[in-house]
Write a protein that binds this DNA or RNA. Sequence first.
DNA 1: TGTTGCACATTCAAAGCATAAAATGCAACA
DNA 2: TGTTGCATTTTATGCTTTGAATGTGCAACA
Lengths: 306, 306
Amino acid sequence: MTRKHDLPARRRSDISSVLAARIVQYLAAEKLPVGTHVPTQNLADRFAVSRSPVNEALELLSKKGLVIHRQNKGYFTSAIAPETPEHVGLALEDTLSSVYFRIAEDRLSGRLDGQVSENLLRQTYDLTRSQLNQLLGRIAQEGWAERRPGYGWTFSTILTTPEALEQTYRLRMAIEPAALLEPTFQLGREAAAQCRATEQWFLSGGIETASADTLYERGVRFHETLAAASRNPFFLDALRRVNRVRRLLAYRSMLDRQRYYSQTREHLHILDLLLRDRNEEASAAMARHLRSVVKNLKKIKPLLKV
Amino acid sequence: MTRKHDLPARRRSDISSVLAARIVQYLAAEKLPVGTHVPTQNLADRFAVSRSPVNEALELLSKKGLVIHRQNKGYFTSAIAPETPEHVGLALEDTLSSVYFRIAEDRLSGRLDGQVSENLLRQTYDLTRSQLNQLLGRIAQEGWAERRPGYGWTFSTILTTPEALEQTYRLRMAIEPAALLEPTFQLGREAAAQCRATEQWFLSGGIETASADTLYERGVRFHETLAAASRNPFFLDALRRVNRVRRLLAYRSMLDRQRYYSQTREHLHILDLLLRDRNEEASAAMARHLRSVVKNLKKIKPLLKV
DNA sequence: TGTTGCACATTCAAAGCATAAAATGCAACA
DNA sequence: TGTTGCATTTTATGCTTTGAATGTGCAACA
């Protein structure tokens, strides 16, 4: 009798746990007084899901004491209000993403062959068929693997080419300054303020204490917020795409934290110019900013070697 | 007894028929003398498949008299050499692509709701599960639909927004002139020659006789060839992506054929400059070219209304 | 020596059932 | 009146079997 038959059917993707993490995030951001009623439908609307998973998520949170349940009255905020979901052991990331990064690492380190069959991948990473399809679809669209005409997949050389990281910046140098000059460009006050707050938090110590992931995310968010403000979805889209691939290439370049100080100051400068509607100057500053990042990358090139 | 049980299992995607079409293309391009031996392994290598589907494809072609089979000797070119696969009833496009375009049309015309379940799509377009997954994956990556957190999918407004077409051009105006200025830019002689030949064929009558699809393809190929010559895969990738969406938006704008004459002349001008290594000027010409295309689009705006 | 032709191995898609997760309707309650 | 709590319906995925399409090794042949 094979092992598979003894196991229960694998659980399908469950949004309630991710939802719980997002609810924690939401409660932390809103800073509601203790004992505030949190209506189920309200949350359901906010996260574009139905009440069922919201209920499950709230039940999970009530077990952890983050909300309090009263029969026939619903859920209420408690005195415990963690700053981040991670503090109470909740992950915002779904399981598939972690496999995605494992595949990327295995490929970068050469543990994974240039040509693989789907069965091999399913066994290696313990995936169901649709999970694998989702993953491969994503990877294929990001351009670092493609299905062969018959069976199997080939990984492209994008990830293993040394100049790939610089090439992502060169595309960004074409896109991002142009985005700021789009006629429809309009940066919302709120988004700008939030960007500025984040940058300032980083300047005042965050750079030293934050995790590499957080540092990367913050950079991405700044640049993608500006691209989104262009109100041209194709700009944002192109940037998002290149950033996802860059993430796979960039993690080794984050060892040197000094350069983040000048980066952050440049970000703030660009924000200032945009808020005063000096988009031409902001665009030029953005071009300079990206150029200087590339220049710094070249300096630390020895670090980038595997 | 339901209908389903009476039907045989649906055939899976079969590369041999598409392969046959590509072989016809290849034979037409090579212009081999009648009676030339066409080794199976040779074709298999060229198209990165095994000998099995190549054999099937050749058998198909031999039934149509395009190649001649001799026992224990293999296949040989015959006197019949059609110019295009379409002339002998072979399609280069797979079945899924046609469904893809049907979905896009149905969405554009409003026949398809903004929110749909997968079951509905499977029934409407008669798709298997993995076919639907493939399609939705593709559509999602192109950004005009996304899966809702729970069940179902929502179509984004990209396709139905009137300014979307212009926005695709605005991204191209950022990307394409920059691509010509990449330090690694190098346009192969052969690719350039082929581009030029195509453009000249269009000038000398092709514009009037070619199908709308062919006209669109030719434009895409010209621009993507130049982007590829930048040797920066991210430029090519970004352009390809925006072009795929543009195809869905553009077909109504192809009613007016007059403007293709100036477009073609501009293409040739850009090629000339690039061949003389005057990339700066070529880049400026490309920017002008794209600007003028947008301007012409605005002129024929009434045509674009649904 | 290189290619064909064929048999056999491998790989993956299709179909259908069972079932978990999410959406929804409705009575009970505050 | 609006919300909760629960039951029911809808939706999509996991698992398995089956078989077709593709890949590959080897003897026969030119």
